[in-house]
């Protein structure tokens, strides 16, 4: 059943230093700070899972996608939700096909091994990640782990410490080489310490002005430099205003793209009022910015730009 891994000579090799890691990520338009680059380098070298925690829209999921692209590996994504169980995370039997096989076999019955064989096995993300892959060990993204419940966390603990899963009918399946595991959490609840301490932990914060500007230039190159500067300065000032939900980097990029689509060359209170929905997602926050408040924040942002 296992496919022998093919020679992976044409695969990009793992970066050999922290600098190389940072360069590799920025080549794929993922601009990150030294701390995150260190973490990624360690994860690749020591083969340990990464646990990224932070507000929505700061680039946690994006890191996994970028790594998959940069290393030429397959990306396997497990989106977590409440009630996620082994049947949707690890494997499931194809019952309909098994039923038909049983009926077709008729009186003689069917051998158990034949019924519970690879042919009827549906692989879900975790099992998929434990299988050999042509492109080398895959990137396993376990997204929004805080959405599941404690029992699944405990289950994951086992899967992530030994990189193996057990299927009662088939036995234990162990990954030939551990996958690169990235877990993300929006911290809508505390994930248990036992899981966190098996991972390399990083709190992904909102970036500084310069870094966010670099990110925007990399991700939305169609926006002019003046517009990008203004957008970033405005969003940075927004995060200082007392909002219910601060806009993330994803919102900054979205907004810049919206402004480009509207042919805006610079921010003005009218343009802001028309496109605020791309940045703020709560009615209370939008109402707060109606009228003079937006103008005030725009002025603060411009003043900040002038001093830089």
């Amino acid at each position: 059943m296992p496919i022998p891994p093919r020679p992976t000579s044409n695969q990009p090799s793992l970066p050999q230093s922290i600098d190389a890691t940072q360069a590799m990520l920025s080549d794929e338009n993922y601009i990150c700070d030294r701390a995150l680059a260190t973490l990624v380098y360690l994860a690749l070298t020591l083969k340990r899972p990464v646990f990224l925690e932070g507000e929505a829209g700061v680039g946690k999921t994006e890191l996994a996608k970028t790594l998959a692209k940069a290393l030429g590996r397959d990306l396997i994504r497990l989106q977590c939700y409440e009630g996620l169980d082994a049947a949707s995370a690890v494997y499931e039997w194809n019952f309909a096909a098994q039923m038909i096989a049983l009926r077709a076999a008729g009186e003689g019955g069917l051998d158990e091994d034949a019924l519970f064989s690879d042919k009827y096995l549906i692989r879900r993300p975790l099992l998929e990640a434990m299988q050999p892959h042509e492109n080398g060990p895959p990137i396993l993204l376990i997204d929004e782990i805080d959405r599941t419940d404690e029992p699944f966390e405990a289950f994951l603990l086992e899967a992530l410490s030994d990189y193996q899963v057990t299927i009662p009918e088939l036995g234990t399946i162990k990954a030939p080489e551990p996958p690169i595991v990235i877990l993300t959490s929006n911290r809508t609840r505390e994930v248990h310490d036992a899981l966190k301490r098996r991972c390399l932990y990083h709190w992904v914060d909102y970036p500084s002005f310069e870094r966010e500007f670099d990110i925007l230039q990399a991700r939305a190159p169609e926006a002019s430099e003046t517009l990008s500067r203004e957008v970033v300065a405005f969003v940075q000032s927004l995060r200082e205003a007392d909002l219910f939900k601060n806009p993330g980097v994803a919102e900054t990029i979205d907004w810049a793209k919206c402004l480009v689509a509207l042919d805006a060359v610079a921010l003005s209170p009218e343009v802001i009022a028309d496109t605020l929905g791309a940045v703020l997602k709560y009615q209370d926050d939008i109402a707060k910015l109606a009228g003079s408040e937006a103008t005030r924040i725009l002025d603060t942002a411009r003043a900040r730009l002038a001093t830089q």
């Binding site: 922290i18 030294r34 020591l46 390399l200």
Partner: peptide, 29 residues
């Protein structure tokens, strides 16, 4: 894990040393 990580990351720069230890030893914001 931290000792292994320091070995893997090398001991060249103070900030790398800081980030390496932080990644291994801290698990809460």
């Amino acid at each position: 894990g931290a000792i292994r990580a320091v070995e893997a990351a090398g001991f060249t720069e103070r900030r790398d040393f800081f980030f390496t230890l932080r990644a291994c030893l801290v698990s809460r914001a």
